[in-house]
Amino acid sequence: MAEPQMREVAFRGGGFVLSPRRGAAAVFFALLLALWELAIRAGWISPLFLPAPSAVTTALWELALAGTLGLHVGQSLARIAAGWSIGTIAGLGVGFAMGIWSMSRAIGVPAVSALFPIPKIALLPLLILWLGIGEPSKIATIALGVFFPTAIAAYSGIDGVPRNLIRMGQSFNLPWLAILRKIVLPGALPGILAGFRITASIALILLVAAEMIGAQYGIGAFILSAGNLMQTDQLLAGVVLLSVLGLAIGTVLSRLERWLLGWR
């Protein structure tokens, strides 16, 4: 009998595994911007429809030269900071109550479901009647938008804390407050931080709505005004500012997550 022939077993794995490609995004966006610029310079697209990246950059530069860039960004940041903080603190308070006490849950869940979907822009006239056209109504618009998702994230986060950890705390006679502070709060933190990502974006989205209320400065007011005046280069410049702000806030949140949730 002949020696059986030896063959190598064919490799069938591979694929479906994603590996990081550093710099790919940067190159892609650079190419996209270059193509965009070229399309307008070459006259394929009318600048009336889409201003060139250079025009948007110029608009930003002029804004910086005029000294209003800082005013727009500063006032918007102040509104976001105040509105987001108020909405978050209130949302965490209500969310924690809903996560801990059955009564709060029984009342809170239908209340949140009923009030969350109300478009905040529709409430602007009411907010103006209650709070005027100064900063309070603008801050309240953002705070309202932030409040509900925070409350939901907080009570879902608490629901996600393993019950056995709470039982463990009780078995060691930990005081109620210590269980809350040392077990429930850190256990709910991943869910709460995920909620922060959403509410930070909501705050940015609502900035435009908030600055509809008699704002002279602010990125949202700037975008609104550019839209009304059909200044498309400035409109896009404002959008770029908003994106940069979103990116910056996202980066800060990522750092915060890495710092607070290093144990995961």
């Binding site: 056995n164 950890l165 039982r167 463990m168 040392k182 077990i183 850190p186 256990g187 933190l189 949730l261 144990w263 995961r264």
Partner: peptide, 8 residues
């Protein structure tokens, strides 16, 4: 299940 706090 040990019931250790993963963040400690």
């Amino acid at each position: 299940d040990f019931a250790l706090l993963p963040w400690r």
